[in-house]
Each structure stands twice: as C-alpha cells, then as structure tokens.
C-alpha cells in the first residue's frame, strides 16, 4: 500500500515496501562491494576496508583500497545500476519480460563495435570504449528506424526486430573472432564474457558522470513509462506525449546500456533479471526504475564477489550468465505452465 505525504498543495506518494526493498538492496550491494574490495592477493578484513574508506586506515591499506580495488567495486555497482534501469525501461516499453537490451541487440551491437576496434582497427582502451558506445547507439538507431511505422514505434515490433538484429550481430561477432590472430582473439573473447578485472578510476569516473546525467533523466520519465503501459491510445488521451517520451526513454536506455557495456563488457542477464526480481520483491505493478537499478547493482556486485571467491578465476559475466540462464529457464517454464506469454 502506498502512503502520501502532503504539505499544502504539494503531495508525494511513497511505498514503504518498495522503500524497504530499495534500502535492503543497497545494503546488500554495498556489503558485497566491501568484501570485493577486501578480496585479493593481499586480503583485507571488512572492518579494515571500511576504516580505510572513511580515512581512518593506515597508508598502505588505504592505497590498496581506494586506488587499486575501490574502482572495481564502484564500476560493478554503477554498471549494475545502469543495466537494471535500462532493462526496466525496455521491458516496460515492449510489455515483454524478454524485451531487455541484452536480448534485443543493443548489447550485441556494443560488442560488435568493441570487437571491430580490438580486431580490425587495433584501437586502445578509449577507442574500444568509443567503439562499443557507437555499436550500441548504431544498433538501437537501426532497430528503432526499422520498427518505425505510421508515425510511431510499437514495443512489440521493437522486440522482434531487435531479436533479429541481435542474431545477425552475433554472427558478425563470431566471424570477426574467427578472422583474428590468437592473442587478439583471446582479448576479444575475454571482453565478450564481461569482466570487472583491472578496473581503475579511468573506468569508474566516466561511468559515474554518465550516470549522473542519465539516471535522473530516466527517473524523471518513469511516470510516463508507467502511463505508457495503458496502451498508446489511453496514455495519449490522458495527456502523455507518447512518441516523444518513448524517443527520450529509448535514448536514455540505450545510453545506459552503452556506458555499462563500455565499462564491463556485455555482462549478460542482469538487465533481463533485475527488473523482474525487483518487481516480485516490491510487489508493485508497472516499472519501478529505482528498485530495478538497485537490484542490478546488488546482482552485479554479488556476482563479482562470487567470481572472486571461486577456486578458479572466472569473470563476472560467466557468473551472471549461469545464474541468469537458470532464471530464464524458470521464467519460461513458469509462464508456459500458466499458459500465457
């Protein structure tokens, strides 16, 4: 049930359950991040990590924590946030739990852009980042243009065309790797699994700045996204500029997908799973971007911690892929049983 706080003509609605879930997810994400920072060749206990973070630690520990390992944890949290929110945006617009950016080609497009840089142009870190952003944006523009018909874009068409685009780009990615030299192919394959290894402030800072712009924009359009779920006609009749809102939301969603892919590679399934899990926990109908984002941050952070604690070195993308695959099977089996789509 929602509560209302009123002051004069102003009123704000909030839901205690959603707020509690949000706080809980934030706590889980931050706790996992603390343990991620503590893990490595030189283990640091959680209290010591916290002490270093608040400026009470000794010099060596503080250096390891803030300069070497904190960026990794920050990238994990931020990229997870971006993935969760972008997943919620696209799933809501397509009215389909499978309509997430990792399944409708945007993430695959980011990979193609990155692979082209790694394998064909031999670009450095910055060029790879630019390549993946360009790949995601280019794919999204093509998918959006192809689904444009009669003055607008329907969510359903967006998903179908996106899935087609993803398949073609997947094929292109495989072809690029077969043509590569062994060392480059290794680098490319590593990028493709999605990893948080060797992330520094040069990765975390741009990601943080991008999210400082994109996340508030997404939240500001959240209400219109909710209204859009009533169908274009009803939403429009209620005063929502449907097509303009959709264009902004697509742009923001693609931006979030692109910057997260740039920072961690195409980590699979977080965008797909986070909004659905958040929705089940908050028991809300409609999209809730903030809880989806916090769920994404918690998932990626915990996934990273698991990948660090496993006896063999495993990139975080493999962990989220394995967990997400299980979820996907469960989702399809559950909807199959209900006899609905």
């Amino acid at each position: 049930m929602s509560r209302v706080v009123r002051a004069g003509a102003l009123s704000v609605r909030w839901e205690p359950r959603a707020a509690a879930v949000g706080v809980g997810l934030l706590a889980v994400g931050l706790a996992a991040a603390v343990f991620v920072v503590g893990t490595g060749d030189f283990p640091i206990s959680a209290p010591e990590v916290v002490r270093a973070l608040v400026g009470q630690g000794d010099q060596a520990t503080t250096f390891i924590v803030t300069e070497l390992r904190l960026p990794r944890a920050a990238v994990g949290l931020l990229a997870g946030l971006a993935l969760g929110i972008s997943g919620a945006i696209f799933q809501s617009m397509s009215r389909n739990p499978l309509g997430s950016p990792d399944l409708i080609g945007f993430t695959t497009g980011a990979s193609t852009g990155a692979l082209l840089q790694i394998l064909v142009f031999g670009g450095g870190t910055l060029a790879i980042a630019a390549g993946s952003v360009a790949g995601a944006v280019g794919t999204a523009a093509a998918v959006y243009a192809l689904s444009y018909r009669g003055g607008g874009v329907s969510g359903h068409r967006l998903v179908l065309i996106g899935v087609g685009a993803a398949a073609m780009l997947e094929a292109a990615n495989s072809y690029l790797i077969t043509r590569a030299e062994l060392r480059e192919a290794y680098e490319a394959a590593f990028w493709l699994t999605g990893s948080l290894n060797n992330r520094g402030w040069e990765h975390a800072a741009p990601l943080g700045w991008a999210l400082a712009v994109l996340v508030p924009l997404a939240l500001a359009y959240g209400r219109r996204l909710t209204m859009g779920e009533l169908g274009d006609d009803a939403a429009q009749a209620l005063g929502v500029p449907v097509q303009r809102s959709r264009a902004v939301l697509v742009a923001v969603g693609v931006g979030l997908t692109a910057v997260s892919a740039t920072a961690v590679g195409p980590v699979p399934f977080v965008a797909l799973v986070a909004p659905q899990l958040a929705r089940r926990l908050t028991r809300r109908t409609g999209p809730h971007l903030m809880s989806a984002g916090l769920m994404g941050a918690a998932l990626l952070s915990v996934g990273d911690l698991i990948s660090l604690k496993l006896p063999v070195a495993v990139p975080v993308g493999v962990v989220t892929g394995a967990l997400g695959g299980l979820y996907l099977v469960w989702l399809l089996a559950a909807t199959g049983r209900k006899g609905t789509t």
Partner: peptide, 17 residues
C-alpha cells in the same frame, strides 16, 4: 486531457494491476 477523456477500443490493462 482535463476536458476530453477517451475510452479506447482496446485498452491495455497492465499485468496484476
């Protein structure tokens, strides 16, 4: 929208609302 309302032919009811 404060002066003209519309009941569309096929309104979409969000899941579980």
């Amino acid at each position: 929208a404060r002066r003209v309302g519309l009941l569309p032919q096929q309104p979409v009811t969000p899941d579980g609302i």
